[in-house]
Amino acid sequence: MADTARRGALAGRRPSGALLGVVPFFVYVTVFLIVPTLVVVVGAFIATGPGGQGALSLANIRALAQPAVTSALWHSLILSAVTAVAGAVIGALLAYAVSTAKPDGVLRRFTTSLCGVLAQFGGVALAFAFLATFGATGYLTNVLASTGLDDTGGLWLYEWNKGLMLVYLYFQIPLMLIVFLPAVEGLRPQWREAAETLGGSTWLYWRKVAAPILFPSFVGALLLLFTNAFSAYATAAALVSQGSPLLPLAIGGTLNSEVILGQENVGKAMALLMVVVVAAVMTLYAAIDRRASRWLAR
């Protein structure tokens, strides 16, 4: 028994034996991550039309230029950018406000727990929550109508540049708090005190010390919020029942019945487009995050 164990250990010391230990992981990731990614990437370049069945082609990529796709991409970019910027600003303010509370206090725990849940609250339930609030029978719909802010009877809620933005903010702001709070907490009290003893006012401290130190973290968090909104599908799908005003909805549409014959792989081209955008933003995020963590390492 002990003998076999020792022999096993010796065998394990050979590199090939050590590599065996990671095989299951690589097989799994290959099947469920690498293969699907390749299906998307390769499929985007394979024609499905009557003429060139199965041949390499740029037809799908060219198909991205059709107005339905460009407008969906444009809407997605705008929606993501606006909710990322607004969510980042409001969320950063909230993170600062919470950081001034006692670290172990109830306010801090309550807010971070609530935001932890709300940041993941996208999807069906969130759509229903806003319908119950601002929808046709929502309890705030009448209030809005009586103040003259809303004369559509809650129809604004379904529009990507009005209602969807508000709904997206509902998970963007909490996500910002979760991502940004550690950075705000990384601001050392000594920096403020040093700035003060050197003759700086509170305003000067914020302008010359805190803001520059937090800036990389802020931009990083903003990029994260952007990709979060850009790749979100469930909330929009649950709220928007007609048309595909956003890129994720357009991709989802190609999986259902709405596919025009010969354009099955246009969905893959759109998916590739999405990956390219997200990957570009995430690469930028990784570069910025490295700098931020160097300054704020605790």
Partner: peptide
């Protein structure tokens, strides 16, 4: 960390044959 750049909606597209 790769799945961070592959949104669920994209994964669905690629997972269909799998």
């Amino acid at each position: 960390l790769l799945p961070l750049t592959v949104p669920a909606i994209v994964l669905v597209v690629g997972l269909t044959p799998v």
